[in-house]
Design a protein around this nucleic acid. Structure first.
Lengths: 227, 227
DNA sequence: TGAATAGTGTCTTTCAGACAATATGCC
DNA sequence: GGCATATTGTCTGAAAGACACTATTCA
């Protein structure tokens, strides 16, 4: 809030720009990958950046983030959560830009094919094999990856990376990919079933050359944290 | 980032304002209290608000938050962490204002007397007895209180509310005040000592009409999370 | 010696982690 | 029957939680 006339006047003439950037995760080729856009212009021309854009004057921050992802890969109703706001005065060489970073999760099966426009090149990169990145976006990805890794341990957000119906092995695989290590199957099943997040659908996934798996779904779709 | 000429042009002419607001907690009268400022002008004249102000063009967000607290109560080197960014287009009736909220902790003993300027009235309020609040500041306080309550359980941030030297009973009291319930003394001491956060100074706090307490201090001053 | 707070140990329960054999479906 | 994945239980160690008495200082 402007506390003095001087501050208020200054503020009227000079404001930072505000953007949202979205760190969109999905599991692809059994790796955790993030969607990146190749920059076509200065600054950081040819470098890769998170999808993002200016916040419109009548638009909520989360709506802006949702819009960016929808424009980029046609996904609606995905898991979306605010990550952190990055505001280093030097983070954008053009002018003062404060960015509110979000992270989002969706299963690869829900993603429409990336629309190749003339200006944009978009691609998924494994979080452990990122290309040259623009601005402070590598830092944002590291920050978001850390948050994801931690939060799947005490919430149901990992299911944002899965379709509505899934087998326990598929769930375990998500955790193994994100943690980057194998988990004991019996202990994992004990833990995930004890959380009460899941209910069995009673159905089985048959047609494969092995014992069919029971199919589960989330008991409640909203984000739940526990512990 | 501006992806089209149209967006860029629009952006040049119309930007949201960006403020920081600081939720400053301290323990006073054995209650968790937050510093609030009485608003002297429209909008919400006479309502109470978090200390805050515009982010200056060459200033980092965290520096802006630190500056606000320093101006308000003369505390430097306090615990300060970003909380959340609130950006509802309607949250400020004057214009679009996006606020990056921080929360801060300091022991009451470190706080210089609140400077009564002509324009400002400042006061501490218990988080469970807040007055009529301006903007969405009640929501910010609830959000921050929740974060604090949760984070003292897996980090050393509670010590931000204590002076450098303290007894275990004083630590326990902080936790009891924030959790709003009594904790078993033996279990608490086992837990806090096992965390490895504390080292004994070997000194005792004497002069009181009861057995003197051993004085401890933090092993490391930086923020540490565990579990 | 009475008032006030500091300091201390055991038992039980719960949860995390190590660990391997059987079941089912398809070819 | 062979292959591939699904499903299942026990034991052990660590940590959390319930619970009550003794120690020290000062007035």
């Amino acid at each position: 809030m402007a506390d003095t006339i001087e501050e208020y006047k200054k503020e009227v003439f000079e404001k930072p720009s505000v953007t949202v950037d979205v760190l969109f995760f999905t599991i692809k080729d059994n790796k955790l990958q993030a969607l990146l856009i190749k920059r076509a212009a200065w600054p950081f021309k040819g470098y890769w950046a998170l999808p993002g854009g200016f916040v419109r004057m009548e638009e909520d921050l989360e709506s802006a983030a949702a819009r960016e992802i929808y424009e980029e890969c046609g996904v609606k109703n995905l898991f979306l959560e605010q990550l952190f706001t990055f505001g280093d005065p030097k983070r954008d060489p053009r002018t003062r830009v404060i960015t509110v970073a979000y992270y989002a999760l969706a299963p690869i099966t829900e993603i429409k094919k990336i629309q190749k426009s003339e200006v944009k090149e978009a691609k998924y990169f494994p979080v452990n094999g990122l290309p040259k990145m623009a601005f402070d976006h590598k830092r944002i990805i590291n920050f978001g990856f850390k948050r994801l890794k931690s939060k799947i341990g005490y919430s149901n957000i990992a299911f944002g990376l899965l379709p509505k119906n899934f087998s326990l092995s598929e769930v375990q695989n998500i955790y193994e990919v994100i943690y980057g290590k194998k988990i004991d199957k019996r202990n994992f099943r004990k833990w995930i079933l004890a959380s009460g997040l899941l209910v069995s659908t009673g159905k089985k996934k048959s047609g494969l050359a092995h014992r069919p798996a029971l199919i589960y779904k989330l008991a409640k779709r909203e984000v739940i944290t526990f512990d």
